[in-house]
Nucleic acid binder design. Structure first.
Lengths: 233, 233
DNA sequence: GCGGGGCATTGACCTAGGTCAAAAGCCTAT
DNA sequence: ATAGGCTTTTGACCTAGGTCAATGCCCCGC
């Protein structure tokens, strides 16, 4: 059973739709769980037995072909919802990109609760619609953008998502942050190889739009120019 | 005002969630509208003032870059729902690929109605979740599949979508059908050029997996083999 | 401080698919 | 039937990004 009072995402997760007493009822159904980097929460193709809220950390949703090609089809940040309610099997796997903490529910219990709480369902619908819009924007990226446009878009996207997640969210984005993924995973989000990711990053660095103090860290030095590239203008 | 009694998609569209009296109330808010091929119902970036159910025909959802590259991010068939309820501006345009008939609602009216009808929202949520899964499958295609895998996947997908739409839905797919789009549009769905689409189609034809009696018509002659290619196995 | 295992970068080369241009079908209107 | 304007196909060539192979870098344990 979770303690929602101290929950870091209490006001941003779908739980925000609930009144205190309803929240208590939902809390009885869920439990907090730690996930370590690389750990898989749900396997692609398995029956989706759980749904969850992300409290801390970043996870990926990914799909693979029989011959081992992988595509990351979603990246999930704190306060985001994970899983496929009312569903059968999960069409993608869910794996932690960083150490993470999630608030897990069995799907059966969650589905039942959701059916009784239209406000929760409404919140979930809004989130799913947003997620769908984001997926579609990403389809444009994957179908039509060049490698440098993809990299620029990814950096800005992460900057924004981390920004709106961070506690001290005065700005809606961060100009300096740690990537929640390695080069291979960047490639898997962008439909590129690790080498292309690396080359494009050095290009942006040489053009002085970003700095890369170490493997994980990114400093955005010229957001305007980066946005221009990302928009494919 | 629509006459739902004779509606072709009465039992498959989200309206199926409603009892007869509720349906009557909803019908008062909507009206049937014909759309001719090429006509745009919603412009990318415009405030999304309408939502709709597709009664007949096929429409595309598409996104463009400033410099004119286009990506089709969704293809909508009869009984599917169009639009972004509870939203601000539409992140994609909606254009008819074939002549079509839709049942349109102003977003404001629909949103209001939906808020009062949890069953309708539930149905909408399920559909949106399905749509999201489909979008993610397509991200895998756009990010990681080869040209021939993409073409095979598209042909099978259309065969399935048209199959489950057709009245005489004994089989869940059709082995012979008219493409609801031209070569350019196939390219725009698949993230390919028109030339590549054409070349890959002739390859599949030469390998005797399909026949192409005319511009639009497709006959699937060896579904098994086509599926093997599509799965990227 | 030294060695080893991972990541990341860089370089040299290759290829799937893009680009550009021409030909071939096809519909429609005369 | 025939001309004109489409869409589609085919061909020749090019290039962005993939592949393969070093090399470099960083971190950690000894």
């Amino acid at each position: 059973m979770s303690n929602c009072d101290t929950c870091l995402v209490r006001n941003r997760a779908i739980c925000a739709a609930l009144a205190p007493d309803e929240l208590g009822a939902l809390a009885k159904l869920g439990r907090k769980q730690m996930v370590t980097r690389g750990q898989t929460l749900v396997w692609e193709g398995d029956e989706a037995l759980v749904v969850a809220n992300v409290i801390q950390g970043v996870l990926k949703l990914s799909v693979s072909t029989a011959d081992g090609r992988e595509q990351i089809v979603g990246v999930v940040f704190p306060s985001d919802f994970i899983g496929r309610p009312f569903g059968k099997e999960s069409p993608y796997g869910v794996t932690a990109l960083t150490d993470a903490e999630v608030c897990v529910f069995t799907r059966a219990a969650f589905d039942g609760f959701a059916k009784e709480h239209p406000d929760l369902q409404h919140k979930l619908l809004e989130r799913t619609l947003d997620e769908l819009d984001r997926a579609r924007q990403w389809m444009m990226l994957l179908g039509r953008k060049t490698a440098s446009e993809r990299i620029a878009t990814l950096l800005l996207e992460i900057s924004n998502r981390l920004g709106s997640t961070s506690c001290s969210a005065i700005t809606p984005f961060l100009n300096e942050f740690d990537l929640p993924m390695d080069r291979q995973q960047m490639g898997d989000v962008l439909g590129l190889t690790i080498e292309t990711v690396s080359r494009q990053l050095t290009k942006l660095k040489e053009a002085d739009m970003i700095a890369l103090p170490d493997r994980r860290r990114v400093v955005i030095k010229d957001r305007r120019r980066l946005e221009n590239i990302a928009l494919a203008a």
